[in-house]
Amino acid sequence: MNPDLRDLIVELRADLEADQPATLLWGQINQGAPADKISDDVPQPVRELLEVADGVRAGDFEILGTADLDYWRNLLGHMPEFSGVADEPAEWYYLGLLAREPLLLRRDTGAVWWCPQTSNDPFYVREEFEELMPNLEYFLAAYVFGPLYIDVAGDDGWWEFLDEHGLTTVDEDDEEPDE
């Protein structure tokens, strides 16, 4: 995990803790887990996140901590047929939830996958499952702790918290130049 993202998570955790209990309903970033408490089968990018934050509640996002991993790992075999996950559960890692719907990490590429919220139907009948971001770091920076949060979760307490911290606008220096 890049040092800037690591520092941001630590800073946001401190700010959330300073405002408890008011923030507990929509935001909580747990202390990191000791490396020896993280299972060997956890993908490296997730391991790095767990060492900084052993579970994150960020508005509609819930990134799983070490205490929850075994339970959710068992649900990979119950993912809808259209996703293909149940056919190859060892290729996937259950990263967390967005509005109670699965967020998975593909072990071979590190990409974060989801069931896009294209209708009011539950995810298991929408028959859509696709890559959301090419890696965990981009996903965290853009969606969980950044300006794309509002696109998938809306305007809520977490969004207001991100806005107070100047994290709701795209930094033009981060955009790729036109070719």
Rank of each mutant, 00 (worst) to 15 (best):
P3D: 13
L5H: 04
D7R: 10
V10A: 14
E11V: 12
D15P: 00
E17R: 03
L25R: 05
W26D: 01
I29P: 00
N30S: 15
N30M: 13
A35R: 07
R47S: 02
E48A: 14
L49I: 12
V52S: 04
R57H: 07
I63H: 00
L69S: 02
L69R: 04
D70T: 12
Y71M: 12
Y71C: 09
R73N: 11
L75F: 13
H78E: 12
M79I: 14
M79T: 03
E81V: 09
S83D: 00
A90E: 15
W92T: 05
L97F: 15
A99T: 15
E101V: 14
P102R: 06
L103E: 01
L103G: 08
L104K: 00
R107E: 06
T109D: 02
A111E: 07
C115W: 01
T118D: 14
S119K: 08
D121S: 15
F123G: 02
Y124I: 01
F139H: 09
A141V: 06
Y143T: 12
V144P: 00
G146H: 00
Y149G: 08
I150D: 04
I150Y: 06
V152D: 09
G154Y: 08
D156F: 01
W159S: 00
E164I: 02
H165K: 11
G166Y: 14
T168P: 03
V170S: 07
E175W: 05
E175L: 09
E176L: 10
